[in-house]
Design a protein around this nucleic acid. Structure first.
Length: 561
RNA sequence: GCGGUCGUAGCUCAAUUGGAUAGAGCAACAGGCUACGAACUUGUAGGUUGGGGGUUCGAGUCCCUCCGACCGCACCA
C-alpha cells in the first residue's frame, strides 16, 4: 500500500486550495462573487500556479488588483492547511502566484502510480454526446481529408470518454441520393467497357479507376448476362453491389486507422423504415412548416438563415435536408448533445440545425465543428482532391506511406479551424522528424531504463512500483516533470470542453520534453538507493501518462524503436 | 454582390477562449556523451500577430473598416 504520512494528509488539493482562496476573497468583499481557479503559472519565476481573480474584483473593491491580491493572500494564509500546502505566495502584477510544497508534487506522482491508466479520468457527468464524423458518400475510397476528420473525431471521442462523457460515435452512409444512381451508371459503363472499350462513360459518372475492379468482379460472377438487360435495371443492381463493396472498404480502412464506430447508419435504411416521413410529419404537427409553390418549407430564417429551406419538393420527394431532419431527431433520442464534424463547404448547415434544435425544444443541442480543408501539394503542384476529377490520394495510400501513428498524430496536431497544406513529397521525407517520434522516443527511453533497472536495481524498482520514497524528489527538473503530469486531467477536460483534440498532442510533446530534460539533468540508476527509487517512480509515472495520452490519440507507445 | 472561415518568426503550427515579457518544432549559427538510448540536450538569432481605428485596468483573441486567401449562396447531396 501507499503509505500516507501526516504531512501528506495535511496537503490540500488544487481545488481545495482554490475554494479556500475563494472563501478568503468573499470574506473580504461579500458583494462580489469571485471564482478562483488556479492554472499553471505562465513563467517558472512566478511560481507553480496562478489565478487572476484579483482583476475581476478590482471594480467592486475599487482598488488595484495588485493590492487586492496581497489582501487575499494574507487572509488565505491564516489557514493552517493552506500554509501546509503553499511554500510561497506572492502578488505579481495583479496575479496571485503560489509555489507549492514539493510534497504536493510528490503526491501527484504517487497518484499516477496508484491509478495507472485511469489517472486523469473525470467523474461520469451523465452528459450523453453523439459524435458524427468522417461520413462520406459511398461512391469512392476514403481520401486524405477524411484522414484528418477521422483522427480528430476519434481522438475527441476518446478524450471525452476519459473526461467522463457518455459518448456515442456514428457515421452516416449517404446511400439514398442521386449520387447512387450516378455510381450505378458508372459501374455499368465500366462493365460494358470490359467488352467494348469504346463504350461511353457518363458525364456525371465517377471517373476514377477504382470502379474497374468492381466491374471485373461482376463479370467474374455473372459473365456477360448484364449485356442483355436494360441499362436502368442493370445499373440499379450494380449500384447496390458497388455501394456494399465501397462501404465495406471504407469500414476496413477506418478500422485499420484505429477508428471503430458505434453505428454505421444507412440513409436508405431510414427511408425504408419510414423515419423520414415521420420526421416531416413531426415538424408539420409542430407548425413550423409552410407550403409555397407546391413545396414544403422550413422557416430557417428564424435562426438567421439567408432563406427558408425546402423540405419536400413540389413533386413530393423529400430533399436531403429532410433526411437530416429525421436523422438528427434520431440522434437526439440517444444523446443530450449532438456534434457534427463537417467540412468548410457545409458551414451553411449551422443555421438549419439551430432551427431544428429550437423546434425540438432543445436550443443549442446541435453543434457543428468545421474541420478546415486540406490543400494537397506534390512539390509545387497543387492537386485537386475531387472525386469527380478522378484524381485521388486515398487515406489508405497515406497510411501505407507514413504509417498510422505518424498520420494520426500529424492530423490531430493542428487545430480544426486551421487550414492545412499537406505536401506529399514532404510527408515521406518528414517522417523521420515527425514530432510523434520525439514523443515515442521518450516512452521507449523510459522502457529502456526500466529494463535496465530490472537487472541492476531490482529492489528499488519494486519499491518504486509501490509508490515508495517519492519524498526524495526535489530537483527542479524532477518537480517540473511532476507538475506537468498534474496537468493531464485538466488538459483532457479542456480538450473535451473546447473540442480541441490538438491540445493532446501538444501536451504529449511537453511531457516528452520535460522528461528528456529530467533525464539529461538527473541520473536515474545511481548509487543512492533512495534517489534511485524516487526517480524510478517518476519515470514509471511519466511512462504511464505518456502512454495514456498517446492512447487517446490512438498512437502506439513503443518500448523500443 | 451577400454570407462564413482564416491571416501569428524564413517554413509548419501553439497561445488554457479577454490576462503577465506572443511560445514550440523544422531550417541557421555556437556548445554538450569513456555511466541509464545523442531519435537527446544547452544557448544565440528570428515578430509592429496582414494594415488602420475602436471597446477597457489589459486585445493575437471582442466590435468596425480596408487588404488578401479559401469556401458557401439549389425544389444537388
Amino acid at each position: 500500500m501507499n503509505p500516507i504520512t501526516t504531512e501528506e494528509s495535511a496537503l490540500l488539493s488544487l481545488d481545495e486550495l482554490a475554494a479556500r482562496f475563494g472563501a478568503a476573497a468573499r470574506a473580504l468583499w461579500p458583494d462580489a462573487d469571485p471564482v478562483v481557479q488556479f492554472e499553471p503559472a505562465r513563467r517558472p519565476e512566478f511560481g507553480d500556479v496562478a489565478t487572476n481573480v484579483a482583476f475581476g474584483l478590482a471594480r467592486v473593491a475599487r482598488k488595484k488588483p495588485q493590492d487586492i491580491g496581497g489582501e487575499i493572500i494574507a487572509r488565505a494564509m491564516e489557514d493552517d492547511r493552506v500554509r501546509a500546502t503553499v511554500s510561497q505566495a506572492t502578488a505579481i502584477a495583479g496575479f496571485i502566484n503560489l509555489t507549492l510544497q514539493p510534497a504536493f508534487w510528490q503526491r501527484v506522482v504517487g497518484d499516477v502510480l496508484r491509478e495507472g491508466d485511469a489517472y486523469g479520468r473525470g467523474n461520469p457527468n451523465r452528459e450523453r454526446v453523439s459524435l458524427e464524423f468522417g461520413s462520406a458518400n459511398p461512391t469512392g475510397p476514403l481520401v486524405i481529408v477524411q484522414g484528418r476528420t477521422l483522427s480528430i473525431g476519434d481522438t475527441l471521442a476518446r478524450a471525452m470518454r476519459h473526461a467522463g462523457y457518455d459518448v456515442f460515435t456514428e457515421w452516416i452512409i449517404n446511400d439514398a441520393g442521386s449520387q447512387i444512381g450516378a455510381l450505378g451508371r458508372s459501374v455499368y459503363a465500366r462493365y460494358r467497357q470490359l467488352f467494348d472499350s469504346a463504350f461511353p462513360f457518363p458525364d456525371d459518372g465517377y471517373p476514377g479507376d477504382y470502379l474497374i475492379p468492381l466491374a471485373e468482379s461482376l463479370r467474374a460472377r455473372d459473365g456477360d448476362r448484364w449485356l442483355h438487360v436494360p441499362e436502368a435495371e442493370a445499373s440499379e443492381v450494380f449500384a447496390g453491389f458497388a455501394r456494399d463493396a465501397i462501404v465495406a472498404e471504407q469500414q476496413a480502412v477506418a478500422r485499420r486507422f484505429g477508428v471503430e464506430y458505434d453505428l454505421w447508419q444507412s440513409e436508405q435504411a431510414l427511408h425504408d423504415a419510414g423515419t423520414i416521413e415521420r420526421g416531416i410529419q413531426r415538424l408539420r404537427e409542430m407548425g413550423v412548416l409552410y407550403e409555397k409553390d407546391g413545396a414544403t418549407w422550413l422557416r430557417t430564417t428564424d435562426a438567421g438563415d439567408d432563406e427558408d429551406r425546402v423540405v419536400v419538393r413540389s413533386d413530393g420527394r423529400p430533399t436531403y435536408f429532410a433526411n437530416d431532419i429525421a436523422y438528427h431527431y434520431e440522434k437526439l433520442q440517444r444523446a443530450d448533445h449532438v456534434i457534427d464534424f463537417l467540412g468548410p463547404d457545409h458551414h451553411g448547415y449551422v443555421k438549419r440545425l439551430d432551427t431544428l434544435a429550437n423546434a425540438y425544444g432543445k436550443p443549442g443541442a446541435f453543434e457543428v465543428v468545421i474541420v478546415q480543408q486540406i490543400t494537397l501539394k506534390r512539390g509545387d503542384e497543387i492537386l485537386s482532391m475531387s472525386k469527380r476529377a478522378g484524381q485521388l490520394v486515398t487515406l489508405a495510400e497515406v497510411i501505407d506511406e507514413v504509417g498510422v501513428d505518424a498520420a494520426r498524430f500529424f492530423f490531430v496536431m493542428l487545430s480544426t479551424d486551421q487550414p492545412l497544406t499537406f505536401d506529399l513529397e514532404l510527408a515521406k521525407r518528414q517522417s523521420s522528424d515527425n514530432p510523434v517520434f520525439y514523443v515515442q522516443y521518450g516512452h521507449a527511453r523510459i522502457a529502456s531504463v526500466l529494463r535496465k533497472a530490472r537487472e541492476s536495481h531490482a529492489a528499488q524498482l519494486a519499491a518504486a512500483e509501490r509508490g515508495e520514497g517519492l519524498a526524495a524528489l526535489a530537483e527542479p527538473a524532477e518537480l517540473a516533470l511532476a507538475r506537468r503530469l498534474a496537468e493531464f486531467g485538466p488538459t483532457v477536460a479542456g480538450v473535451a470542453r473546447a473540442r480541441a483534440p490538438h491540445r493532446l498532442t501538444k501536451y504529449a510533446r511537453d511531457v516528452a520534453s520535460d522528461f528528456h530534460q529530467f533525464y539529461d539533468a538527473c541520473r536515474v540508476l545511481g548509487d543512492d538507493p533512495a534517489v534511485t527509487t524516487a526517480r524510478l517512480g517518476l519515470a514509471i509515472a511519466t511512462g504511464t501518462v505518456l502512454a495514456t495520452t498517446l492512447a487517446l490519440c490512438r498512437v502506439s507507445a513503443p518500448d523500443a524503436m
